[in-house]
């Protein structure tokens, strides 16, 4: 393993300028090796934006195998590195990242972290969620995004929440019109109440986009659903999670058990 990585790590070690360091990380990312994941994550804390961009892109391309290491190596002491890592998790959209993104969007002290997480909450790989958990997961994401859009004091975080809400409105499944109308209500309110003209512009853009895109998304989704219902495994999963869902109704939203269910989705999905 280290044989394959050795030349890349050597180049990173020997880099003597910001540019050569960033180039060396780019080469490591371009190699697309699963073994490089911990090293790419380490590159997020070099305090070198070029290296960080290269590392994030590399991690996002590697996708699923990068998720656990990213969650484990999340740097609580370095907010710049944490923002890049959250950005990678947000772009991958793996369900295992949901809990982290929910916490980061609503409570992280760094606005770059909250910003990246808010965008990520709209960008989850929703089709990977089994149907019953999808409902819970999207409701949680919606609540967090509404909170951020209304309460965050930084314009860029509210801007990211609008982007997240737009994506969530499109992803939201047929039959959950309630969530979609909550999003549209929030956007309508922001056209009056939002203080930043830039955020307001993004709200107008989202309203316009949703008006055009929702009917199309609706049409394409119906085709997808009909092919899905014919599969046996989905019914089995549905029964399995239906049971879990009933357990959930007795737990309050703040109960850790409630989140543990969401987290278990990713593990179950892995082959």
């Amino acid at each position: 393993m280290s044989d394959v990585l050795a030349p890349f790590l050597d180049a990173i070690e020997k880099a003597d300028s910001a540019t050569s360091l960033s180039d060396a990380v780019q080469d490591l990312a371009d190699a697309g090796l699963v073994e490089s994941i911990p090293h790419l994550i380490e590159a997020l804390s070099y305090n070198n934006p070029g290296a960080a961009v290269a590392a994030v892109n590399g991690l996002v391309t590697l996708g699923t195998p990068a998720v656990s290491p990213l969650l484990e190596q999340l740097d609580l002491n370095n907010y710049t590195a944490r923002a890049w890592a959250i950005r990678a998790l947000a772009s991958i959209g793996d369900p295992r990242g949901l809990l982290t993104l929910l916490g980061a969007a609503t409570a992280d002290i760094s606005m770059s972290v909250r910003r990246a997480a808010a965008r990520g909450l709209g960008n989850m790989q929703w089709p990977q969620f089994p149907p019953q958990l999808l409902e819970i997961a999207q409701t949680e994401a919606l609540e967090a995004l509404l909170f951020v859009a209304q309460q965050d004091e930084e314009w860029i975080v509210r801007y990211a929440a609008v982007v997240g809400l737009e994506a969530l409105a499109l992803a939201t499944q047929a039959g959950s019109g309630l969530r979609r109308s909550q999003i549209q209500q929030q956007l309508a309110g922001m056209t009056h109440e939002e203080a930043s003209v830039s955020v307001k512009a993004r709200v107008w853009q989202a309203q316009q986009y949703l008006k055009e895109a929702i009917p199309q998304a609706e049409a394409s989704r119906q085709v997808e659903q009909s092919s899905l219902t014919s599969t046996d495994w989905e019914q089995i999963l549905a029964r399995l999670y239906n049971r879990k869902l009933k357990e959930r109704t007795v737990l309050s939203a703040g109960d850790p058990q409630h989140y543990r269910e969401l987290l278990s989705v990713g593990t179950l999905q892995e082959p």
Binding site: W155, V197, S198, A201, W204
Partner: peptide
Amino acid sequence: LAENSLKLIALKGLLERELAGTPGP
């Protein structure tokens, strides 16, 4: 090659200039 936060603030300056000309929606 710089922090996204700073690039976003710069782009906000461009956006606001555009919005001053065409105020929306």
